[in-house]
Amino acid sequence: MIIRLQVLFQPLNPSSYLTPPSKRTKNPNPNPKFNPIQKPKSYKPLKNGLTSTSSSPPQPTTDCGLRFHEKLLYLETLKVNPTKALAKNPYFRSTPLSFLKSVENCLSSMGIERSAFGRIFDMHPQLLTSDPYTDLYPIFDFLLNDVHIRFPDIRKSIIRCPRLLICDVEDQLRPALCFLRKLGFEGPNALNCQTTLLLVSSVEGTLMPKLDYLMSLGLGYEEVVNMVLRSPGLLTFSIENNYRPKVVYFLNEMKGDIRELKRFPQYFSFSLEGKIKPRHRLLVEHGFWLPLKEMLKVSDGEFNARLIEMRLRLAG
């Protein structure tokens, strides 16, 4: 059972983010605590387990050699790279082993297996010296009671996106949740353990530009919203590395109609070089055409069988 910390939350009003670009004002959010003009802080500072008045990392004492060696062995049991941990988290040297184990106990209490710790701590070594009660439990509390993720699914959310553990609830997670709910991620489309990774995205810096780009293709606002609700992964793709090259190939080489992207937004989830281009070129080589869904959604074996069948029909 998690003891929910009594924190007074001030609700945000990101509804203005959801208006089409033509109707946006320069200062759509009256709440001074979350200025949409400024990029919200994505990460929160994780506190050292020891109280220190110095701004620099505390130095190890003369008798800590054995204890430090114990901590290195502890990292090895977790399958964490000690060199990387020390380089990215200098507070590790002075933090007692008992504090490190309290972080492990916190994650274990939420159902996260010890076998997953290595990947989590390697990605975010600052978690090793975090305070469970001020840094971690508030995040779990938010996921359980605000996002309404079931307790058995909390571990899935974290393993899928460990970055959740280093995001500040009020500066990052809550604004993103409000935006996504206004967008339509509620009810049957509510966030789940597979889509909570969207919460780590900046509203102004990441989510809105992707919506704007899709609308720049000639799609209406409601059409884009429906595409995103059907395929939430659209909000995780890079504009420059995913959207733009795939749109250019679709329009110039495939001579496609943007309306087909509206019907099959999953197009952007397939590899351009590994699947889209090879399959399209095979179809063109034999003078065939298939809708995006039929061309991409099937396995390689099914696609080749379909291609042979079409060739046989043509020959017959």
Rank of each mutant, 00 (worst) to 15 (best):
C64S: 15
L136I: 07
N241M: 11
V225D: 02
L292T: 09
P36E: 09
N27P: 05
F99I: 12
L78I: 02
K41A: 11
D171F: 09
Y43L: 05
W289Q: 11
S22E: 14
L107G: 10
C178F: 06
L144Q: 06
L234Y: 03
A85T: 00
I158M: 01
R181W: 00
I37P: 00
N145A: 04
S55M: 11
N252T: 10
L143V: 05
N192V: 04
K255G: 08
S201H: 05
R313W: 10
T95S: 09
L75F: 15
T53W: 13
V103L: 10
D168T: 05
F99S: 14
K88S: 09
V169D: 04
P96R: 00
G256R: 00
V228G: 03
V298H: 15
L164V: 00
D63Q: 13
D153N: 13
T134I: 13
D300F: 03
K255V: 03
P138K: 14
K44Y: 04
T83H: 11
P162F: 01
E113H: 13
E204D: 12
N105Q: 15
V200D: 04
D122P: 04
E204M: 05
F268G: 04
L235G: 08
E113R: 13
G49N: 00
N189P: 10
I139K: 03
W289A: 12
L197M: 12
C64V: 14
C161M: 09
Q266W: 12
E253I: 06
V80I: 08
E222W: 12
W289E: 10
V298R: 15
Y213I: 08
D168Q: 01
R24G: 08
V228S: 05
G111K: 06
D141W: 01
P209R: 13
Y221R: 15
